[in-house]
Computed example of a mutant assay.
Amino acid sequence: MTPATPRPAGAADSTRSGAVLARLQLLVTRKLDGLLQGDYAGLLPGPGSEAGESREYRPGDDVRRMDWPVTARTTMPHVRRTVADRELETWLAVDLSASLDFGTGRWLKRDVVVAAATAVTHLTVRGGNRVGAVVGSGGVEAPPARRWRPQPPPVGPGQLVRLPARSGRREAQGLLRAIAETPPRPGRSDLGALVDMLNRPPRRRGVAVVISDFLAPPRQWARPLRKLRVRHDLLAIEVVDPRELELPDVGVLPVVDPETGELHEVQTADPALRHRYAAAAAAQRAEIAAALRAAGAAHLRLRTDRDWLLDMVRFVAAQRHARTRGTTR
């Protein structure tokens, strides 16, 4: 449930999305290029396929990279480094269901989703890497699009659309435009089906990024995430609004479920109700974090009332620090 807010017209949404995307691209280029100057790696350490040198095992290392011959000779656990692939393929699973069309902070949750996709795409497309996406806009599943051009095709109600992975800045801008201009649709999206589209067909090892508020029950999407992590490095970007964590004391507050249209009036002056709401929200977020951790995903939480770019910069810095220590998380 989210506080009821008026929704702008479709044409205004498209114009606003284009303006927001233009500002985001400029902001990301300035900030993240400065942060990662001279560093080939992007948001996550790229998976390697060519064997490198061995070193002693450290807590947090991927046990699938254990070097058993060296471990047997030295009687100390060792892992084998891998040389990063010079051509990396990244796939985004972008959830744009109706629950993302809400925000009480500096941004709408939808804007933060587009911002995160912009940052990941910018970090990936450098060096000739390919980036693709699957986009869900709520409702029931429909056949994915077969072809894609920089100008996005019309998206029907409830579609899960696949945008093929391609290299080049022009193609990346077209992909981001298609994401930003995807209209919100009524109905609850199937996050599990959206994630599972990254598992079909099987692709070579790369990076998978899932961007959502993860409000769907974890039992719906946890198993597809675990399956995805078997083959790819996985990053889960969770988008949160402060009103989803606690209610303000503002008297009677009309709230509406953006996915079903159901309307309720809540008496927020009741401290017991606010306490129960905050406790339930904390338990829900803890369950989401536990499910992501069990899936082996790197977890980045972005809030609509905070500087999302600063949070992303800190995340990138932490990943780089972990990489220098030989860990991947």
Rank of each mutant, 00 (worst) to 15 (best):
M1I: 09
M1T: 07
A4V: 12
D13H: 14
A19W: 07
L26A: 14
L35D: 03
Q37P: 00
A41F: 11
G46H: 13
G46R: 15
G48C: 09
S49N: 06
Y57I: 11
P59Q: 12
R64M: 07
V70M: 15
V70L: 14
P77H: 09
T90L: 03
D95T: 00
A98F: 02
L100F: 14
F102V: 05
V112F: 10
A116L: 11
A116T: 09
T121F: 03
A133G: 03
G139M: 01
R146T: 15
Q151D: 15
P157V: 02
Q159D: 12
A165F: 09
G168A: 09
G168F: 08
Q173A: 09
A178V: 07
A180M: 05
D190G: 00
L191E: 00
A193T: 02
V195A: 04
V195E: 00
N199P: 01
R205K: 09
G206M: 02
A208H: 06
A208W: 02
V210P: 00
A216I: 01
P218I: 02
R219I: 09
R223Q: 14
L228I: 03
L234Q: 03
L235G: 01
P242M: 12
R243G: 03
L245W: 00
D249M: 12
D249R: 14
V250G: 04
G251C: 13
L253P: 03
G261M: 09
G261Y: 07
D270M: 04
P271S: 13
A272Q: 13
L273M: 12
L273V: 06
Y277M: 12
A283W: 06
Q284H: 12
Q284F: 04
I288K: 01
I288M: 02
A291I: 02
A295R: 03
A298C: 11
R301T: 15
R303I: 04
D305L: 04
L309D: 01
L310C: 01
L310E: 14
M312W: 14
R314K: 13
F315M: 04
A317L: 15
A318W: 11
Q319W: 04
R323V: 07
